[in-house]
Structure formats: structure tokens, C-alpha cells
Design a protein around this nucleic acid. Sequence first.
DNA 1: GAGGGTGAGCAGCAGGATTCGCATCGCGTA
DNA 2: TACGCGATGCGAATCCTGCTGCTCACCCTC
Lengths: 233, 233
Amino acid sequence: MAQTKILVVEDDAPIRRGLVDALRFAGYAVEECPSGDDAIDRVCATSPDLLLLDVLLPGKDGFAILEEVRASHPQMAVVMLTARGAEEDRVRGLKGGADDYVVKPFSATELLARVEAVLRRSAERPTDLRELKLSDRTVQLELGRVSLDDGDGHSLSDLETRLLRYLAVNRGRPVDRRELLQRVWGGNAHEMETRAVDMHVRRLREKLERDAANPTLILTVRGKGYMLAPESP
Amino acid sequence: MAQTKILVVEDDAPIRRGLVDALRFAGYAVEECPSGDDAIDRVCATSPDLLLLDVLLPGKDGFAILEEVRASHPQMAVVMLTARGAEEDRVRGLKGGADDYVVKPFSATELLARVEAVLRRSAERPTDLRELKLSDRTVQLELGRVSLDDGDGHSLSDLETRLLRYLAVNRGRPVDRRELLQRVWGGNAHEMETRAVDMHVRRLREKLERDAANPTLILTVRGKGYMLAPESP
DNA sequence: GAGGGTGAGCAGCAGGATTCGCATCGCGTA
DNA sequence: TACGCGATGCGAATCCTGCTGCTCACCCTC
């Protein structure tokens, strides 16, 4: 595989310098972008593997950029740089769909550790899921069909398929409704009710579960979201 | 790291002048605010590292401001300026959660000494705690999860997580119940029973301790409060 | 050592807030 | 018209949180 590419969006020149040097030294291909307003264009132009995004930027701020990036690149790995002490920034960042954050001032070691961890996680996600085995039924994800072992099944809508695929890719981890909206719906999902997710989970359950009232495949984790039950061995 | 930022809230122009000059001279970035009514907004807008707050202000007084600031920025370092002789103001200030106070009239040297001391203390508290290792279990403060090394664990409520974080940040020092109410609960916590703290400590213990009846992690220091046991080497 | 006073541990409870599930409706498109 | 999709509203379940009242442990004084 080609060299991993990282785009650094940071206005402060010395800090940017430090970031770029540290990442280059670690073997990454690094692009830099000093302005928040250009960030989206640069993301589209370079399509990096990971985006390192400062929260405090002149012009468009980090959260706005994150939102736009998520709309067009739902899968992109994003690490945010937040100021020390700004607790709520971190929460906001993570809720907004960042994969991790690093607190300024940071050590190069920590930065690299976080970046590597995020990249590893995003690499681990299987992207070529075609088939999903759930107890006694099989879902053909590219065809959007559920087939039961004992005969026929249902067909899934496009959205349902994408939702199920995302849950499958993150199998065993509860996925937040907001994250689902971000990653599955994409686009203008931020202005949607999160309850829309519930509806689709319900519809999925009706097609997948043996007893939709007592789900065993798509579990709800109170306060966290939904989770596809881990594969039983 | 960027310059340390201090917000000075003081109505008397000459005194404010003196404060600002002294602090600037010492190398701090200083913002000033002449009115008590704007103070909160300025705090939110500039998010300073330290707030220097006069008690006697036209409009909203220093204590009211302190209370509001504590509600939204429980970690912020606050030094109060009190008039000479107003003993009870100092007590009230410290009980209200100020970190220190300076008595007017003051010398620049004394002011700087106090400011530096408070900043040093608050710098010692790592604010970007994400993970807490307690003997054989790990607490993920971001997610509010306790996981035992040998399998599953519990999830912590929001309040529990904040409480534990505060104890962790002040690890090894017994923390007063009143201080906990101020810093963890924030807001209108002063009209609460301090026993509410006990309750939550108990609940934390039940989730954290191997034997909740004989705590080894969250220790009670009689007459002082609670303390997170210092890291064993 | 006895006794009183204070602080802390410990259920249990109840109000309130969240969160979920579900039924239903309306809208737009094929 | 059928279908997919999102919004809305309601009820139920669940959780969080602080209070009350009791007991127990500790400390101090006598």
C-alpha cells in the first residue's frame, strides 16, 4: 500500500511546523493547510487517510469543518487538536464524529500514538463485507436481501442495508445514534431527529429478528445507541 | 504552549490599570473587564487560565460571578480581590470556591506571587485525563466505563465520572465535601446536603472497589473528606 | 475504661428526567 | 398506488439523584 497520507489543518505556523515534522519523521506523507476555509477543498483534493484538525481556527472553526467533512467523507479518520482545559470541546468533538483528540500542548510521542491508534482502528474495519451471518439467517449486503435458512426472506432498502453494514462493521461496539446519522446517512443528517434511527432499527429488526419485541441481534444499549450482537463462537 | 491568559474583573480604573500593567509586565496575556455584569460573557469568550475577580463590583458582585463561573468552568483558577479588613469576605470567597485571595491594597510582588502559586497548582492537575488505572481495573473517563482486567465491568453515570475525575486530578489529597460539591456539582450545590457526596462515593465504591466495605481506592479521611489513594509505585 | 458527640456507612425510597419502543401521519418518488 | 423515509406524540421502562433515618465507628474527655 502507498504511504499513509495525513492532512494537517492548523493556523499557527510554529505548531503546524512541529506537527508536520513529527509526522514526516514517523514516515507519513503530510500535507498542510493553514486556513480553515480551504480545509474542505484540500480534503477533497488530497483525500488523506487521516485529518488532523485544530479546533481553534480563524474563519471556519474545527467543528464546522468536521461536519462538512463527515457529510462528504463519512469514513475518514479525524483527530482533533483541542486547547488544554477546554473539556467541552473534546466532548463536542467526539460527539461530532471525531475519532480522537489530542490536547495542546502535546508531546510528539502522544500525538503519534493517537494517530497510529486511530489509523489502526480504521484499518481494522472490514470494508468489503458482502455477507453477514446472523444465527440462522444470512444477509447479502450487496443485494440487500435477508434469507432465512428455512426458506424465503425479506429485501432490505438501501438505507437499511447501509445501516446494517455499519453496525456489522462495528460489530460488538455500541454505536451512538449521532454517529449513525453521521456515518450512514451522511449529508445533512445533523439537522435530523435522532429518532429516525430508532425507526429504521425497528424496521430492520422486523426483518431480521426472530422476535422483534425481544431482539437478540440488534441490541439496544441504553444511553449509548445500538449494537450488533457479537458473533457467538 | 501559548501565553498564559488572565482576565481581570475590576471596576476601579486606576486599580485595574495597575493590575493589568503588573501582570503584563510579568509576561501574562491580560484581558480586562470593568463590569461585573459582563464578566461571565467575557469568561466564556476568552476562557482565561486564571480569573482575577474583585469582590466589590457595581451590578453583579464577585461572589455571584464566582458562583456562575464555577457552574460552567469548575476547573478555572480564580483569585479574589478583597478589601482590607473584610475578613468574612475571604472566608466566603474561599468557601465559594476561590483558589486564593489578595487583600487590597496589595503589592505587585504579592499579587504575582499568589497568581503564580495558583497557576502552578492548577497546572499540576492534568486536565486531559482519559484513563485511570486503579490496581486491576481501568476507568475510561471519556466513556464513563470501568473495565476489569479480567472481563466486563460497569458503566458510570455522568456525575460519577465527574466525581471520580476530580478525585483523580487531586489524587493523594483529601478533598473536602464542600469542595466536591462546588467543583463537581457546580451551580446551586451550596444548598445541598453534603451527604449527597457520601452517596455518590458509596456508589462509586460499589463499582470500583473489590470490597466496597473495605475501600482501598477511594479512602475516607475522617473530618477531611475523600481521597483517591495515591498511585502505588 | 465509659460515655457522649460527631462523622461516616448503609439501605430504601421517591421524584424527576431520560431514553426507548411503537403507532401513526404526511411527504415525495417511482 | 405502493413504497421508502422522516417527523411527532404518547406511554412505559429505566436510570439518576438526593433525601431520610438508622446504625456503626471513631475520637475525645472524664
